[in-house]
Design a protein around this nucleic acid. Structure first.
Lengths: 352, 352
DNA sequence: CTGAGTTGGGAAAAGGTTTTCTCTTACAGG
DNA sequence: CCTGTAAGAGAAAACCTTTTCCCAACTCAG
């Protein structure tokens, strides 16, 4: 048995253009041209080469192509979003936009670790990615890496480290308007706002839009309640709004609550139910993020502002592609509109 | 100004080994050897070349290396898990295990679309990934692509399309044992099981373990209640268990519920509270998946079975690596142990 | 001074593809 | 019959790195 005892290669060698050319009886140059619809040759030659390639299962080696073209048809997506609530829809949109152009996406979760971030960025640079999309959790929450001066195009989604960068974010103020105006249209008059920590820029943007809409509609403005992005905070906020002495100079309890995210909204809805207050009967509730897995599980299902992350990802992907292609892109923030997904937590228009 | 009006290249050309060699006054061969600690040369020469490389910011072109070494240091992760509940922790583990070896991961979400799956697989094959990890949502939920006969190594995580494949899954039966035995240890006697649809293999594996543990402990077995993987089903299951005429030949209501996932558990906890039943006082609850965002938001926080997905991902990544390196791997399923994460939904041991 | 052995470093091929340039052959027009 | 042109196809360079093989120069013993 010693004679054929050499280790058998488990996986066969891939077929190269050379193999195709040899089999078809032409040079590699001709074979290449035949397959790429370039150069001049008889239709029969072209077709014969193509048929040979097909029958051999030839697939061009993308590494060799990339080396020559100085483009790898590869981009990197950098994120620190552990649960993927933001990054996955984004990824989906990016991938959508790119896969048809033959571009694949490296996903790198760098957590909050600068060393890990550095490691991933260097790995991507070495692999000659054509560009990088960096996404944070919120616009003012940055990744623990410096992507300036990277000699490849970088696009930011959901974050913007400096004004010269190209960034895509959703229109938080617009989204908040959507929600509050929806309440107004339904005849709600005493609209509260329970949101996230003051350290987030989006919290202020949304709060301002909330105040603006109320003012435009001649409704009383109560100061937004700020706290953590959690269900528990939703509970506590309801306690503050509904249990204490009447707020706001003796005015009535709220008949609507606009929440900073769906988890807070969930807490609010649960807390209201526990107090015997009906949603949407007594109080309407709107969330933010439209995280389906939460929004559809609340009772009743939650009306929520959707940030259109898939579309945002698609835009970011396409823009990166044009940047890679040499098209210039104006630096700055591009705000994409949000969308209100109406479920059952707001009810129908109230009577005058 | 017309004289320098030519379009300025936005991004400078990367520095190559050639540049380094020229700058250091040696041949590319010598430069390569200097940087890779190969060949023979004076220590000064080596150090001079290295210093030159450093100062020029040289990074070897991974494409060229890959072409030569016939390895791209790249793997693909194929998934159809839209929310990333399973795929992201897995990804995290895989990435962890691979990034230190300079391997990057292409993430491809193929949804349930065979065309998309095909597209992504071909893109990855063209890019010469060294291997593929395929992950489904559950062991008997397969991806809409055929990865057999792919001429590169494939590893499955959380799914196993055929017995010849190498697959990593978590030990569902073991996880269920962990939960039910925990209840037993705490003195719970009437333990119910509310799980997912009968069409999932894991549902049966866990149910059988549930029955086994009860039998071993001489406790009454009630047939598991099967339904969708949703909070709403948790509510309904509680209605069936606690509202109707007493089940099981007049035996008492359950004092513990082992749930098939955390969402069901959340529904169960909420439904119990609405009936005035205390958790963990009157009824203990354990979930499955340990999806922190759910498990930590229930009141009280949910004790849950963790599938150790990060570790599973790490194992899968390392195994793929060794497969790529030519080491053989025995086909079949490798079951990795689960782990019980104790929070507050089970309480302390009951007396007698 | 000669021959063997060692040392430092370079030339060249390989990896797979694309592209430019060149070469041969055939054919039409004069 | 001769020249010019176009068609069809191949040779070779380029992309960048690694690795094998080879060469020149030097050291040292005899």
């Amino acid at each position: 048995m010693a004679v054929d005892d050499q280790p058998v290669p488990v996986f066969p060698k891939p077929v190269t253009l050379r193999d195709v050319a040899a089999r078809a009886g032409v040079s590699v140059a001709t074979a290449s041209k035949a397959l790429n619809n370039q150069g001049r040759m008889t239709a029969e030659t072209r077709e014969r080469i193509r048929e040979t390639a097909r029958s051999l299962g030839f697939r061009p080696n993308s590494l060799a192509q990339s080396l020559l073209r100085r483009r790898s048809f590869t981009v990197g997506l950098l994120t620190n979003d552990t649960y993927g609530r933001f990054s996955l829809p984004l990824m989906s949109g990016i991938s959508d936009a790119l896969v048809d152009n033959g571009v694949s996406v490296f996903l790198c979760n760098v957590e909050e670790d600068p060393r890990l971030g550095q490691l991933h960025v260097e790995a991507m640079l070495d692999k000659r990615v054509d560009g990088i999309i960096a996404t944070g959790k919120r616009i003012d929450r940055h990744l623990p890496v410096d992507l300036a001066n990277l000699r490849i195009p970088v696009i930011y989604a959901f974050t913007q480290p400096d004004p010269d960068a190209v960034a895509f974010v959703c229109d938080d103020a617009g989204g908040a308007r959507l929600a509050v105006e929806h309440f107004c249209r339904l005849g709600r008059r005493r609209i509260a706002h329970v949101s996230g920590p003051a350290s987030f820029a989006v919290v202020h943007a949304r709060a301002q839009a909330y105040r603006d809409v109320l003012a435009e509609n001649g409704l009383p403005v109560t100061e937004p309640l700020l706290g953590p992005w959690s269900e528990a905070w939703g509970h506590e906020a309801v306690a503050r709004l509904f249990d204490g002495p009447k707020l706001n100079n003796g005015r009535e309890r709220p008949d609507a609550v606009f929440c900073g995210n769906d988890q807070i909204a969930r807490g609010v809805i649960d807390a209201l139910r526990e107090r015997g207050l009906g949603v949407p009967g007594d109080v309407g509730v709107i969330g933010f993020d439209n995280w389906e897995i939460v929004a559809e599980a609340t009772r009743p299902p939650l009306t929520s502002v959707d940030m259109n992350l898939v579309a945002l990802g698609r835009e970011a992907g396409l823009t990166l592609l044009s940047l890679v292609g040499g098209q210039p892109a104006a630096p700055g923030i591009r705000k994409l509109p949000c969308r209100l997904v109406v479920r059952h937590s707001c009810g129908h228009p109230l009577d005058g």
